[in-house]
Amino acid sequence: MFTKLLKYEWRATRGMLGLMCLISLGAALAGGGTMRYLVWAGEQSTEQNILIMVNVFALVACILTIIICGAAGMFLYIWRFYKSRFTDEGFVTFTLPVTTHQILLSSMLNSAIGTVLLCLTIWLCVPVLMLVGLSGIPEFLPELKEAWPRILEVLRSAIRQEEMKYLWIMLLNIVLGFAEGLVMVMLSVTIGSVIAKKHKILAAVGCYYGISMLLSFLIGISTAFAVLAKGTETDAFFGVFGTSSVISLIAAVGGYFLMHYLADKKLNLT
C-alpha cells in the first residue's frame, strides 16, 4: 500500500516538477546566451548600450526565474500535502485502508525526492549558465565533455583527503537540516489544520514561524556553548556542526511523531 501511495503522490506532482526543472534549465541556457553576448560585447568594446542593458536585464530575469522555480518547488509540495490531507481531498486520503504512518511518510518521501531533484537541476543550472556564457552554445557540449574527466578526478582526489571529514559533517548537517525543515513545515501544516477551524493556512504559517524561532534559539544556544567549551578550532567546528546535527535529528524525529499523533488521534476533517 505504501508504494501505491507513493506512486499517486509522485503522479500528482511530477508534471509541475518537470515543468519547473525544464523552465530552470531553459532559463540557464537563455541566461548563458545573454552572458555570452555581454562577454562578446565587452571584447568588441561595442557601444550598443541599449542592447547591453537589455541583455543585463534578461540575465537578471533568467537568474530570478531559476530562484523562483526553486521556491515554487518547495511551495508545490507544501500545497500538495495540505490539499491532499486537510481539504476535501482528505476525505479520500484518510478513508483509504492505509496507516497514518504510510500517509505521512509517502508525502514526506515524495517531497524529499522532488526537492532533491529540483535542487540538483538548479545546481546544474549554474555550470550550464557559466559554460554557455563563457564558451557559447555551439562549444558548450564539447567543452563539457572535455572538462568532465577532470571534474571527476578532482572529486575523487578530494574524497581521499583528510579534510573530507569536515565536508562529511557539513553534508550530514545539511541532510539532517533538510529533513528537519521538511518535517517542521509538514508539522506546521498539520497543527494549523487540526487546531484552526478557519484560517488554517495562517495558523500553519504562524506555527512555522514559532517552531523556527524556537529551533533557531536552541541551535544558537547549543552551538555557542559548543564553541566556548571546545578547545581547538577543529573541536569547535565539530562541536558546532555536530550539535546542530543532533538538534536537527531530534527535531525531525520528535516533529514526525507529534505530526503522526495529531493526524492519527486528533484528526478533525469537517
Binding site: T95, P97, L267, N268, L269
Partner: peptide, 28 residues
C-alpha cells in the same frame, strides 16, 4: 469513516476499532 476522532466513547465496525482494517470494509 475515521475522519473524526471521538471525544469519548468508542465506535467499532464488525468488532474492529476504526483503522485500516475497517476502512477496507467501509465505503464512504
Amino acid at each position: 469513516a475515521g475522519l473524526l476522532t471521538p471525544t469519548a466513547g468508542e465506535i467499532r465496525i464488525c468488532g474492529e476499532k476504526i483503522g485500516p482494517a475497517t476502512k477496507a470494509m467501509v465505503s464512504y
